[in-house]
């Protein structure tokens, strides 16, 4: 932590091409990029958004899901987040509560409305598909820096945009579906433009495209459209975000597990 702060301070003071000048090894360069990208995507406090998920099979048939999410940043730990399912009907009212952690497994609970039961679920392995989509749980949660090894692979122009190419290797290889992730980040804003996921056998599994960025709070860039393409099964999933709201005043009490039964899918903040 201290080290990265120092690094940031130095980065801010350096006039040109700070990365090459400062960090010698590709690992240090990669880590510095990841730290900066993380810094730029945090500091929003809390956030709510509406999400439409479109699942598309090989034949082009579509399935839609509607979700709402709430996120609260924590001082010294991963985010707390809530996902409320509005559709399809049979999962309506289901709520997923996640406390992500910088170290160790996340805590996760599922609220099942039919039984009014809050069920603890194991969150160690996050390689499973989220609601039958091409997004795995590990693609959607907050990606904690501490859980990946980083390496800077160079810079590359993507659709006329200069990008850092960053390799990320999950440190908990047993519980990840990936052997490595290659990310393309815009060099000026550190926005994620594209990401490639390689399976445990080192074959290309999926590609993520992040589109329709908008800026909030004067510093925060949020993609309003994520497109995940699975190269191995030919299926695709789009995530469309709308009604992003920040600093709406969420507190820890909004993420208490015994409040889940009183959160409604329709109402709430």
């Amino acid at each position: 932590m201290k080290r990265s702060l120092m690094l940031l301070l130095l980065l801010a003071l350096m006039p040109v091409s700070p990365l090459q000048a400062l960090a010698e090894t590709p690992e240090e360069q990669g880590h510095a990029i990841a730290v900066e990208a993380d810094r730029r995507s945090s500091g929003f406090g809390d956030c709510t958004a509406d999400t439409v998920m479109i699942l598309r099979n090989r034949e082009g048939q579509e399935n839609r899901r509607q979700l709402r999410s709430r996120v609260l940043e924590q001082e010294d730990d991963g985010d707390k987040s809530l996902t409320l399912f509005d559709s399809p009907g049979d999962v309506r009212g289901t709520i997923l509560l996640t406390f992500s952690h910088k170290r160790g497994d996340d805590d996760q609970w599922l609220f099942l409305p039919a039984l009014k039961r809050v069920k603890r679920i194991s969150a160690a392995n996050k390689s499973g598909a989220f609601m039958g989509s091409e997004f795995a749980f590990e693609d959607l949660g907050s990606r904690e820096l501490e859980k990946y090894g980083h390496r800077y692979l160079g810079s590359e122009s993507l659709d006329g945009r200069e990008c850092f190419v960053l390799e990320q290797i999950p440190l908990d290889s047993k519980n990840s579906g990936y052997s490595r992730i290659i990310s393309w980040l815009d060099t000026t804003t550190y926005r994620l433009i594209r990401e490639e996921y390689f399976d445990q056998k080192q074959r290309l599994l999926k590609t993520l495209f992040c589109r329709e960025y908008q800026q909030y709070l004067g510093f925060l860039w949020k993609a309003h459209r994520l497109e995940m393409v699975n190269h191995q099964n030919g299926k695709e999933t789009d995530l469309l975000f709308a009604n992003y709201r920040f600093q709406v005043g969420l507190t820890d009490r909004d993420f208490r597990k015994n409040r889940l039964k009183n959160l409604r899918t329709g109402g709430g903040r």
């Binding site: 497994d105 805590d107 603890r120 679920i121 194991s122 969150a123 160690a124 392995n125």
Partner: peptide, 9 residues
Amino acid sequence: LQLVEGQWL
């Protein structure tokens, strides 16, 4: 009581 440990509950 419920204890979660990896993939075990």
